[in-house]
Design a protein around this nucleic acid. Structure first.
Lengths: 336, 336
DNA sequence: TTGTACGCGTTATCAC
DNA sequence: GTGATAACGCGTACAA
């Protein structure tokens, strides 16, 4: 009832093998024959059955995108970029969310994707987590985003440099009592958490400023968390004159806290974020902009290359540059 | 080399047919046998080949989510909700973005999804568009979100009521010169665009306020567009004392414009949005909150039911309620 | 360059 | 309740 490759073969006066070859643009077909076959297929509105094709070829015809969030700003943008790359290939994009503590009963991602994908794109997951380790054992191509692992392709930004740049900027503005709103207390399993902290400390120590635990708070990468963290910092005996939130969303929360305290951002206190969230411009927040689209595209393309049999020649981790964007939130100058 | 159903059958001492039945929890299997088979499969870490299963059964084992955007706030949240529902089923989620004028050369979604999905979830696409009409012709189950079509399941919010509520609120605050920032000039192909406008007009006319074309501007549902629209409204001879932006993101842009003009929101002018964007709270923007998660879940579940053979009994369009949330941005009172 | 024929791993049908 | 076995639609050696 549904059109099969045999129908096309009959109509075009060739064998099914030739149709198969022509439709996949394999080289060993007479160009004229190939063209004719393609026209017949087009005219009859034939599309190959992916199920049959996958069964016969042994390829899954899809890649799995494993991510802890799909609705958050950063993740949705990366996913969108990946989708853009895949749209030009004939691979499906299978979306799987993992690691939500609120839903512990989900089928584990690896189990869910076994035999259905030709490779994985892993977003911001710790390479030491069980989920990712299980995944490595499958032996399929993998591209990591926001983490790193020996022998595995990955795309990252230079979190250390970004954080150092921003902190240096705050120092340049005359600040000495600089607070930080981190994600989770170290050691965090999340690489950006660690690296941005390192960059922060590096800038401080280069400037001869001692790190003071009383100027640290954690916001769990959420807006609400950022607000509470800033509340804590402001409650300390000697509150900071500048605060570096290691994510824009936490900075947004911090902004809210500052407003509640009647403090004018960029005048009474400086505030900086990290990520380049679209809202940061609206809120006049200084931030470190990361090239999200490029991250997604690069990782996706890298995975496709691996699936096509490319070996990753050395340099498995690609580090993309970030950019310091200074806005009004840090434009206050202190004369210490 | 890879484990097949035959290996399990041999190990469990039954036929492949029984294994197949046991693993799919079909009723006509001895419970003890079924349990034994499942244990063997578990122990040997066997997972069925979706390709073979799909080929044999004729089911695609996936649903297609067709959306104009994946990175935008509203869409990413809906997609996330859908993913949540699908995670408990054994259906894959195939993500396809359409209608980006910047990428006209993409494979059309219907062609891309033919034979690979058992149904479609269509986000905020005009039911009269070519893409959606082509899709209807496939005869597969469809659930629409943010649009409506006779005989097709859909989930919507009451845009008219929401817009009317918000406009009424502005009127109650004493405003008479009320501006609106719409998406696209009517007739827009986008239903919320039309309906929110209708609600706006309805509230005005009930209050005996004449609609003035000089109080309309369009923001194309973007932040930048909203900013420019507000710029236009402020440049008019008699600028509005209150403005209703029919999306929060446009309201954010409007906020920016107001700040640039030195106007204090909630004091010099009232501003309202629509959507319940997470940032609206941060910006103290009054808005109409829509239950996004519920929208996504309802639509996804509805599609799954259809795929399972359920007939949609009448009531094909489900309308979910919205909620007026008043914040500081509209708390100014005018005495006309 | 092209065709034949087998196999991919599972489901569904039909007997038993 | 269970077991043979014929599809399912395509890719791919291999032969021609």
């Amino acid at each position: 009832m549904t059109l099969t490759i045999r129908d096309i073969a009959r109509e075009a006066g060739v064998s099914t093998a030739t149709v198969s070859r022509a439709l996949r643009n394999l080289p060993n077909v007479d160009p004229a024959t190939a063209e004719r076959v393609r026209r017949v297929a087009e005219r009859m509105d034939y599309v190959v059955s992916p199920a049959a094709s996958r069964l016969a070829s042994g390829r899954a015809g899809a890649i799995g995108v494993i991510t802890p969030f799909v609705a958050r700003w950063y993740f949705s943008r990366v996913i969108s970029a990946i989708e853009g790359v895949l749209a030009d290939s004939d691979l499906d994009l299978l979306l799987v969310r993992v690691g939500d503590p609120a839903e512990p009963h989900r089928i584990p991602p690896v189990r869910r994707l076994r035999k259905r994908v030709d490779g994985f794109l892993v977003l911001a997951l710790d390479d030491q987590s069980h989920e990712v380790r299980d995944l490595f054992e499958l032996g399929l191509p993998v591209s990591l985003i926001g983490s790193e692992h020996a022998g595995v392709a990955s795309v990252n930004i230079d979190d250390v440099a970004g954080a150092e740049m921003m902190t240096q900027h705050l120092i340049n503005q005359g600040h000495r009592r600089i607070g930080i709103i981190g994600g989770r207390p170290l050691p965090s399993p999340f690489a950006p958490d660690r690296d941005r902290y390192v960059g922060f400390e590096r800038a401080l120590s280069k400037a001869g400023i001692a790190m003071d635990p009383a100027r640290e708070a954690f916001g769990w990468f959420t807006v609400d968390g950022g607000e509470q963290a800033m509340n804590q910092l402001l409650a300390r005996p000697e509150p900071p004159t500048a605060v570096f939130a290691i994510s824009d969303e936490m900075a947004f929360g911090a902004l809210r806290s500052l407003r509640a305290h009647g403090l004018r951002v960029g005048e009474d206190i400086a505030l900086a974020g990290f990520d380049g969230h679209e809202m940061s411009e609206l809120l006049d927040l200084s931030t470190i902009v990361q090239p999200i689209d490029e991250i997604g595209c690069t990782a996706a393309q890298g995975l496709l290359d691996q699936i096509d049999g490319a070996q990753l020649a050395g340099q498995e981790n690609q580090v993309l540059p970030v950019k310091l964007v200074v806005r009004a939130s840090t434009m206050v100058r202190r004369t210490p």
